[in-house]
Nucleic acid binder design. Structure first.
Length: 284
DNA sequence: AACCGGACCAACCGCAGAAAA
DNA sequence: CTTTTCTGCGGTTGGTCCGGT
């Protein structure tokens, strides 16, 4: 099946947008919403294809877009999220309000990638480069070693989830999430926020997981709920005495153990990764 | 002043998945 | 269930700017 081009190319403007075109597009969307992107240019009187209009709006004209250079904090966040999510720019952008996937992608390709490489970190794998010709594998620094450890755990968890996907799909429910989605939920939660602010992290043996501690389940967009007893794939992360507490063994007995192991593994590394403090190299 | 090369970034292209017919 | 259409995403390109020679 041959796919038709997204729009009739002849007679349509291409290249940079003029101020007049921007004004027409903004006025139209403010009055009517974008509706169907394909029909928008015709209704708005623009000689552009719908795809071009959508791109212009989402990457440049949207009122909630934050212009200007990235802050150090934003750069740190992009690096951290890239280590977890890879080149999922849209997912990364969703964690940085006002920033677009295109902007983050450009930042990564022109700036952060080189920065990591200059530090001896492979920007794609987040693993340290090793000395060529050396029989021993010599990590460059504790930071890069840390990143490599983090990445390998992520890959391991991903592989395990893939292998389990068939049996896991039998439990199809809104609570079923991938490990990266799971991570994002934790990241967006109160726990994640506390973690980013550098609150202390405590590890508790399973036997010490007490019923009195507040067990946190992370839901969409970072809301926090009490733990639902039949929620699969979620381990116990608690906020106790202003300290993030992780109880590796306090898992839901009804959930698939392999998934639980994977998410626990990810959680362990989540805490093992020292957050902002460990990214101090960016400030150098 | 002219040229060159690198950095930056807006925009385009093609693919994949979702939704609709 | 199959086909078609639409949308969103990620990779890539090409134009512009800027600093160095």
């Amino acid at each position: 099946m041959v796919r038709a081009p997204c729009c009739e190319k002849t007679g349509l403007n291409r290249g940079p947008w003029s101020q007049e075109e921007d004004d027409i597009l903004v006025d139209y969307i403010k009055k009517n919403g974008h509706g169907s992107w394909r029909s928008l240019p015709k209704h708005a009187g623009l000689l552009r294809c719908g795809k071009s209009c959508r791109l212009r709006w989402t990457n440049y004209l949207r009122p909630d877009i934050k212009r200007g250079p990235f802050t150090t904090e934003e750069e740190k966040l992009v690096i951290q999220l890239h280590a977890i999510l890879g080149n999922r720019w849209a997912a990364i952008a969703a964690q940085l309000p006002g920033r677009t996937d295109n902007e983050i992608k450009n930042l990564w390709n022109t700036h952060l990638k080189k920065q990591l490489m200059s530090m001896g970190v492979n920007p794609q794998t987040h693993e340290p480069f090793y000395l060529e010709g050396s029989s021993r594998r010599l990590p460059v620094s504790s930071t890069t070693r840390h990143m490599a450890q983090w990445e390998s755990a992520r890959l391991e968890a991903e592989a395990r989830l893939s292998m389990e996907s068939l049996s896991f799909s039998l439990l199809t429910s809104p609570n079923n999430v991938t490990n990266t989605d799971y991570f994002l939920r934790v990241w967006n939660s109160e726990v994640g926020e506390s973690f980013r602010k550098g609150k202390p992290v405590c590890f508790s043996p399973a036997s010490q997981a007490t019923a009195s501690s507040t067990t946190t389940t992370v839901t969409d967009m970072g809301t926090k709920l009490d733990h639902e007893p039949d929620t699969p794939g979620l381990s116990c992360v608690t906020m106790k005495d202003d300290c993030i507490t992780f109880n590796p063994g306090a898992t839901n007995p009804s959930s698939p153990s392999e998934i639980e192991d994977s998410t626990d593994n990810v959680m362990q590394l989540f805490f093992d990764f020292n957050g902002p403090n460990d990214m101090s190299f960016l400030e150098a």
